[in-house]
């Protein structure tokens, strides 16, 4: 008897911002972060984080691509033939990536120039394909959209943290604003921070801090 009741409750359509669905947004920010926990998308996290501005635009671009691809694939999920599902996902992702690329080129030309190749490389970002395979293929469009947004935010958060320290320590500025000069200090940029190695160090520190806060233990 009790199981029947439970089933009926299950079948009722869930509100979009139910507790479970809210977790889709909040989990990727911390305990299920795509960069620091799943270690996906590291390549671009190293590449575009020398300054805050490109990191910020990259985060938005990736969030848009992940969320909209998740949404579209989730709508299509019951019609996609299993044998060509990866290539179908790839086609949808690249469609969105090129859209974003074209829009940036038309409306924010200077930012588009700065990001150059990395917009195109969103296609190869493991986060996008990972979310499509792991979530959108088996869930409804609404939650899939939230999942995409959540993971985009989680990625963007790490990108901005890394870019903050790299730009501050490497170039002495934040969003192009010369912080140390404004404070009247003479600061010589740390060249290591501008190299990919600097990003590795900072991502490592972020993972360390995050794990010690969450009490994470490696399972053997």
């Amino acid at each position: 008897m009790s199981t029947e009741v439970a089933e009926v409750v299950e079948k009722k359509s869930e509100p979009l911002f139910s507790k479970k669905n809210r977790k889709l947004i909040t989990n990727p920010l911390d305990i299920d972060n795509p960069v620091t926990v799943q270690v996906l998308g590291i390549c671009s996290a190293l590449a575009v984080t020398t300054q805050m501005k490109p990191a910020f635009v990259m985060a938005i671009a990736l969030t848009v691509v992940t969320a909209s691809s998740n949404f579209i694939i989730s709508i299509m999920r019951n019609s996609i033939p299993g044998r060509i599902r990866i290539i179908v996902q790839l086609a949808v992702v690249s469609l969105w990536v090129i859209m974003v690329d074209q829009l940036l080129k038309a409306y924010v030309y200077d930012v588009w120039k700065q990001l150059s190749v990395f917009i195109g490389l969103i296609i190869t970002n493991c986060i996008v394909m990972g979310r499509l395979e792991a979530y959108a293929m088996g869930n409804k469009p609404g939650p899939s959209l939230l999942d995409g947004l959540g993971n985009g935010f989680g990625y963007g958060l790490i990108l901005l943290i890394v870019a903050f320290f790299r730009e501050l320590l490497g170039g002495g500025s934040i969003f192009g604003f010369k912080v140390f000069e404004a404070m009247g200090l003479n600061y010589t940029g740390n060249g290591l921070m501008l190299l990919p190695a600097g990003a590795c160090v900072i991502v490592g520190v972020v993972i360390w801090v995050q794990r010690s806060i969450n009490g994470y233990r490696e399972s053997h």
Binding site: I87, V88, L95, M99, L103
Partner: peptide, 26 residues
């Protein structure tokens, strides 16, 4: 969804739709 014909038609349809959208945007 497992038949070859469906897969081929699906792939063609997807390609045409994507190409159309991109051509329009461009």
């Amino acid at each position: 969804r497992q038949s070859n014909l469906y897969i081929i038609l699906y792939a063609i349809g997807l390609t045409v739709v994507c190409a159309g959208l991109l051509a329009f945007a461009s």
